[in-house]
Design a protein around this nucleic acid. Structure first.
Lengths: 340, 340
DNA sequence: CGCCTATCCTACAACGTTGTAGAATCACCA
DNA sequence: TGGTGATTCTACAACGTTGTAGGATAGGCG
């Protein structure tokens, strides 16, 4: 059906290797030979068989991206950035959804199913630091996210502690002292929740505000529903607060919804800041202050680093850690209150 | 480095073909031979080289999904559903972003870059019905979306006209007669915007409500920003309305935001319904009534149909058209007003 | 006992590409 | 004139898998 090197070679009256050389821009080819080959390629509508090329070269030009779920906006936007970054480097992206499930994550690390890729960008959610050993795999792997630190692979992450601290400081600078949190993970030390909580506490400490555990609402997932539920619990508990730090925008939006149902004004009664800079927060009512975690930079760095590892250019280099730059984005939900 | 059939064969003391047969569940293998081979496979940590398998079999087990952008929630959720549907059928998904750009879309149809896939699920945005010829490609292709009808390929679509009609009828059933629309595409006949507008007009006609062109706001993109801008224009124009049909949820949410800024109550002053059933609409304030377009059904059908074409089981069958079932989902934004 | 079929296994070729080795031609210089 | 090196091209093998053809053994039947 499809034309092969052989067909082109026959049509152009040269050997298949010469056709191959033309395709791969080999230097020493006579101009007229090259032209004849190119014409034959065009005539026959030839395009290389990538499976054969992969088999021969050991490279597929495809990288894997394993994320919990694309229906979580953060990961959809991360996938978007990653695909664009990969494209700039001539790579395709094959997406794998783990559902944030630890056993599925481990399976992906050991499974032969991703043999079709040259390497993997891996954003675990269910795994924890004790699982770091499982990252010792025999294919190029770059770790994303905040579940595991000090593992055996390159790691690209956001500045969770610093940016959460900046978010909290932003609320404090608005005169708030009772700052509630939604999205905590009970007992977690590292992981997005643990790290962001640490940044939160650093900011409180620096401002001389005592930490009140009752202000922290714990939840397993970070969906809108969890933000809403947590906020209902906080309100029901009767603990007073004048600000809210949502561990991500989705949680914050779910919580805002409940706050407003309860008749509280934002930011007058409760100032709110989220985390992730989702497009959604630009059009919520009120618009949502947030942390821009540097998603494009993360994706670009991750793809670059993975490509370095694939090419073997950085063979002996020990695991590296990269932190993206963040930014506090102030919108209406934490604007200076009009009157006080 | 990695073990091959040859290594396993050597270790198990059989021919490579026997190992291959074990892997492919060939019937006639003695139990003890099979066991020995399986042990050797486990020992060596063997896993098949998929490039070689693809080269030999002509199948990669990967399908392409070309969508405008994953940062648009609808396509993120579609990708999610598609990946899950593909997984149920043992397929992987390689995602391509077109940005909704016609020339990029055409390029993807002719490019050799997707040779690594067995077929393509294609959701164009920039192409129009005149481009239908370009869908005549020599690889399995299933068309998604509403840009092209009657093309040369299988087509999976939502019931745009009927569901938009149902959405409009829903607003009419709430006693509304001046129903604004955001998201129209000037002069478009087919395409999501054209079809949904047709459904809208059908509902008006059936109810004996005259069509007022001033109630339709046109926009190129369907982002939040466009919904907001369109709503500002509608309000500035002074045209009166008591309901809003957003061509998708994102537009509707952007528009709601502006309505509320303007001091209008939803649904009391303006009842709103969107389209797509994004998770976001469940936690907006107010929650957003919408159309569930049957995304899972679309993804599942599309993958099934593509697989049928890939396998050649339906060789001679002419292009088929599939319409997913939809559902009106009523939430607060179009609830019966409390008092009137 | 001889024939036939079913079972179990093997050797070989092929998928389409690229790396290696080397042949053929030419230009240049001593 | 012959040697040297650059240029241009070719033949062959190999990547790891599966399809084809067929060999060897065992069991059933006349």
């Amino acid at each position: 059906m499809a034309a092969t090197l052989k067909d082109v070679a026959l049509a152009a009256g040269v050997s298949i290797k010469t056709v191959s050389n033309v395709i791969n821009d080999y230097e020493h080819i006579r101009a007229d030979t090259k032209q004849r080959v190119m014409d034959a390629i065009a005539d026959l509508g030839y395009s290389p068989n990538l499976s054969a090329r992969s088999l021969r070269s050991g490279r597929t030009g495809v990288i894997g991206l394993a994320v919990p779920e694309l229906s979580l906006s953060y990961f959809a936007e991360l996938a978007d950035s990653t695909i664009k970054a990969a494209e700039r480097r001539g790579l395709k992206v094959l997406i794998e959804q783990t559902g944030g499930d630890r056993s599925r994550e481990l399976e992906i690390l050991s499974s032969p199913r991703l043999q079709m890729t040259d390497g993997l960008l891996f954003s675990p959610l269910g795994m924890s630091n004790e699982d770091a050993d499982h990252l010792n795999v025999n294919f190029p792997l770059v770790l994303l996210g905040e579940r595991i630190f000090g593992g055996p692979t390159d790691h690209v992450t956001m500045s969770n502690v610093d940016s959460a601290r900046a978010a909290t400081e932003h609320l404090i600078s608005r005169g708030r002292r009772r700052i509630a949190v939604v999205g905590g993970h009970e007992g977690e030390v590292i992981g997005s929740a643990g790290l962001r909580l640490r940044g939160y506490r650093q900011a409180l400490d620096a401002a001389g505000i005592p930490f009140d555990p009752d202000l922290v609402a714990y939840t397993t997932l970070w969906h809108r529903a969890n933000g809403a539920t947590s906020m209902r619990e906080l309100l029901a508990s009767g603990v007073g607060f004048d600000a809210l730090f949502g561990m991500n925008d989705t949680l914050a939006l779910g919580a805002m919804r409940v706050l407003q149902e309860a008749g509280l004004r934002i930011p007058d009664d409760v100032a709110v800041i989220g985390f992730d800079d989702l497009d959604e927060g630009r059009y919520s009512l009120p618009t949502l202050s947030t942390i821009d975690p540097g998603r494009d930079e993360i994706a670009d760095t991750a793809v670059r680093v993975l490509q370095e590892r694939i090419s073997g250019r950085v063979g002996g280099v020990p695991p590296r850690e990269f932190e993206a730059r963040f930014q506090v984005i102030e919108r209406e939900s934490s604007a200076l209150a009009r009157s006080h």
